[in-house]
Amino acid sequence: MTTLGVTRTTLLKDLRMEWRSKDAINSMLFFALLVVVIFSFAFNPTAEESRRIAGGLIWVAFLFAAVVALNQTWARELRNQVLDAYRVSPAPPNALFLAKAIGNFFFVVVLEALMAPLFVVFYDLRSVGPVWQLIVVALLGTWALVVNGTFFAALSIRTRSREIMLPLILFPISIPALLAMVDATTSILTGEASPDFWIKMLAVYDVVFTAVCLLLFESVLNAE
């Protein structure tokens, strides 16, 4: 099978399983909702100045929610030794990685699409800048979180305290991406600055880390 074929098959399998169980999306949605509600106690969410912190808030909520889904990425494959079977098969490791990353990307984008109206309602958000820029930031930012998150989930699944390990290694590396997402979102929402630099930054971050992930995934998959 070619890389593309393996990627598609694995991706479709994951999407079908998620469609039937809805485990990841439900837990992410509920988690993000909780974060939104809890944040609203920390400050007055409808105040005019809250627009300035909305960017940070939205992304922190999505980041925490994404970790919930990312942690489940490989757990399913660990049961019944699916990963071991994959390792002995001639299928290219990067195809598996790409399928998982694209799957996670899809879940988190769906989460964002469902949560965005809620943010608008609860925090009385209006965008001064063009909305299409927000979509670009969301797509680039989500890929930045998800590509590293999928990789680090493969690392943390092999450690003793699996679920705790993922945020511990993912958050420090993701700091520049988060900074870019938050600042770009805030610039667009307030319309006070141009988000161009941050969008380019995110694009560079995506390219660099996708390359690093693809370069190293085989070693991690075969780590013994």
């Binding site: 680090f152 450690t159 290694i169 690093v212 190293l216 070693s219 991690v220």
Partner: peptide, 9 residues
Amino acid sequence: VLAAALAIF
């Protein structure tokens, strides 16, 4: 292996 991968990241 895991540590080396993270170090490169």
